[in-house]
């Protein structure tokens, strides 16, 4: 027997998941356009310009073209895992958008362990990348997958530790509570109290989302296209959408943890949240088109020799100060 509250919760969840799907799709379109336009302007060229005014219909054309392309599976590939991987990459993302507070009242699911939920389910992406590389029966695929796994596993640790430092200060895993514990003005944000954690989080976020300069998993100069070498059409499209969705999640969480979430001068609300998240997303795009890719040993050295000890030190220092 379902009582009225359960039905209410169910409807709320369905609406939230549908909204998250729309949000993922819209973000993918907007970010693809921004990425290509930014790349163009950084390299002193206009970028997409002719398809629609200033090229705004470009991502739409790309999406429809990808849907109209031949779906292809190599003869030696494991059919089930091969098609499971792109879906497994995109589907958990929808869950990640639920606990994020976009505004004071704008949360789909106000769970007390919101940040843990996000960290737990975002790890599923690694599994998807591994399955994709493994099942496509391609040497570039498996090499890219191996890199993606070792990189994601490594960068998850400093990421977790920097998040933990913030939760030490707030005393809560609830994202809404973390948002409201910060003030409206920039000097009241966690960024001021935890600059080192913010830096570690940001660098680890680049590693987690496989973005340049840490996009070793799909380094085209050595691995063709890494784990998605054999994916055509929307198989590739889903990986692409998932990558952008994870970028949005990572930046949203960063906004909540360090930049005050929906808190801002004059009036709190989703407008501040969106502005901060997109500022971080633009930073990620900017970094991608500015810095060259690092070598794999450098990538792991940055993590194990610098980020991890710094994150541990930061956590211990935070704990010490909080106890004082």
């Amino acid at each position: 027997m379902m009582n009225a509250i359960d039905v209410h919760m169910l409807i709320r969840l369905i609406i939230a998941v549908v909204a998250a799907m729309a949000w993922v799709g819209i973000n993918a379109l907007v970010l693809v356009y921004c990425e290509r336009k930014f790349a163009g302007h950084i390299q002193r060229r206009p970028g997409p310009f002719e398809v629609g005014p200033h090229g705004i219909l470009q991502p739409l054309a790309d999406g429809l073209k990808l849907m109209g392309k031949q779906l292809f599976r190599p003869a030696g590939a494991d059919a089930f895992l091969f098609w499971l991987a792109p879906m497994l990459s995109l589907l958990p993302v929808l869950l990640l958008f639920l606990p994020i507070p976009y505004g004071p009242m704008l949360t789909a699911m106000n769970v007390s362990l919101g940040i843990l939920l996000i960290l737990a389910f975002s790890s599923l992406n690694v599994l998807a990348l591994l399955l994709a590389g493994w099942s496509s029966n391609n040497k570039w695929g498996i090499l890219g997958a191996a890199r993606a796994v070792s990189q994601s596993v490594a960068y998850e640790i400093p990421l977790l530790l920097s998040v933990l430092a913030v939760t030490f200060m707030t005393g809560s895993f609830n994202l809404s509570a973390i948002s409201t514990s910060q003030g409206a003005w920039p000097w009241q944000w966690n960024l001021m109290a935890q600059p080192l954690a913010f830096f570690i989080y940001l660098v680890s976020a680049f590693g987690e989302t496989n973005r340049a300069p840490f996009d070793l998993a799909e380094a085209e100069s050595e691995l063709t296209a890494g784990f998605h070498t054999e994916y055509s059409s929307m198989g590739f499209g889903l990986f692409f959408m998932a990558e952008y969705a994870y970028m949005v999640v990572v930046c949203s969480v960063c906004t909540v943890l360090f930049l005050g979430g929906f808190r801002g001068p004059v009036a709190d609300g989703w407008w501040w949240f969106l502005a901060k998240t997109y500022a971080l997303l633009f930073l990620m795009i900017w970094v991608r088109w500015t810095y060259p890719r690092v070598r794999f040993d450098q990538l792991l050295n940055i993590n194990w020799k610098w980020l991890l000890p710094l994150a541990v030190f930061n956590l211990l220092a935070t704990a010490f100060v909080m106890k004082l």
């Binding site: 290509r36 790349a39 163009g40 390299q43 002193r44 060229r45 206009p46 970028g47 997409p48 310009f49 002719e50 398809v51 090229g55 470009q58 054309a61 790309d62 292809f72 085209e220 063709t224 296209a225 998605h228 070498t229 054999e230 994916y231 055509s232 590739f236």
Partner: peptide, 21 residues
Amino acid sequence: GMARFDLARFGAEVFRPSPRQ
């Protein structure tokens, strides 16, 4: 593909490394 001529204006600058895409 570079600044002076810019293939990207017509949406064709996405040089894919893999033939599948």
